[in-house]
């Protein structure tokens, strides 16, 4: 492998470095209650972006698997979910820590929080379903079907329901979006590059896991 294949991984690293430096030094609006913790936006929110991207990749590869029956597509789908669940855990934990200091409780009754918890259950159910199936082809097919079936409901859960309910999060249920505080766009200039950095890192982790699985799969089929 030449440097050509590594450029986006280096880009991810540079974007994350930029996120740390600009995220801690850059100007932020002085708001009551949140104070300096507003900088958590740069680190907490990208976790969700990354999780969502990975779940999206997973559902795309599940659809691909159903039309191609290529076992590699199934491996991409399951590894995307595996890494996505890790980022979901990070998102929940960082959110709980932040909420504890600003909203007064680690688990305030917030639709976004509950929604992401239920979405986690959905993907854990996907993993349980895979464990329940012994035969490889059947496992790949049936879990792909469940993945495609559950995905639109996850979108309703995480993106449509919170918008119609009262929420502590900005941009939901009558709360103003965070763009209102960020008048000159200086926060967006940090958030979006950092988010891209995390998304690339998530994809990188997924490809690593996928390549290991592929090697295992090849070993397995050769030895039989």
């Amino acid at each position: 492998m030449t440097m050509k294949h590594y450029w986006w991984k280096i880009l991810a690293l540079l974007l994350l470095l930029y996120g740390i430096i600009a995220g801690l030094l850059g100007p932020v609006p002085a708001l009551p209650i949140v104070h300096e913790t507003i900088r958590n936006v740069y680190f907490h929110v990208p976790m969700w972006f990354t999780m969502f991207t990975l779940y999206l990749i997973s559902v795309i590869y599940s659809i691909k698997y159903l039309s191609s029956n290529n076992p590699h597509h199934d491996l991409v789908a399951v590894e995307s979910v595996n890494v996505g669940v890790i980022f979901c855990t990070f998102g929940l934990l960082t959110g709980m820590a932040w909420a504890n200091f600003t909203w007064g409780a680690p688990w305030p009754n917030d639709p976004k929080l509950n929604g992401s918890a239920i979405a986690t259950l959905m993907y854990l159910a996907y993993l349980v379903l895979r464990n329940a199936l012994e035969e490889e082809q059947k496992r790949a097919k049936i879990s792909a079907i469940y993945n495609v079936f559950a995905f639109p409901i996850m979108i309703v859960l995480m993106y449509i329901l919170p918008k119609t309910t009262d929420s502590l999060h900005p941009g939901a249920g009558g709360n103003s979006g965070f763009g209102q505080f960020d008048l000159d766009g200086s926060m967006k200039a940090v958030l979006y590059p950092t988010a891209i950095g995390w998304i690339l890192t998530g994809i990188w982790l997924m490809t690593l896991r996928f390549r290991i699985r592929k090697l295992e799969y090849q070993n397995h089929t050769v030895s039989e």
Partner: peptide, 22 residues
């Protein structure tokens, strides 16, 4: 910032070695 950067770069190097190994 220095501490965070060290952790990040360390993790990245670790990931790169895994990548190479695979």
């Amino acid at each position: 910032i220095l501490v965070l950067a060290i952790i990040l770069i360390g993790l990245a190097i670790y990931l790169f070695t895994i990548d190479r190994k695979i």
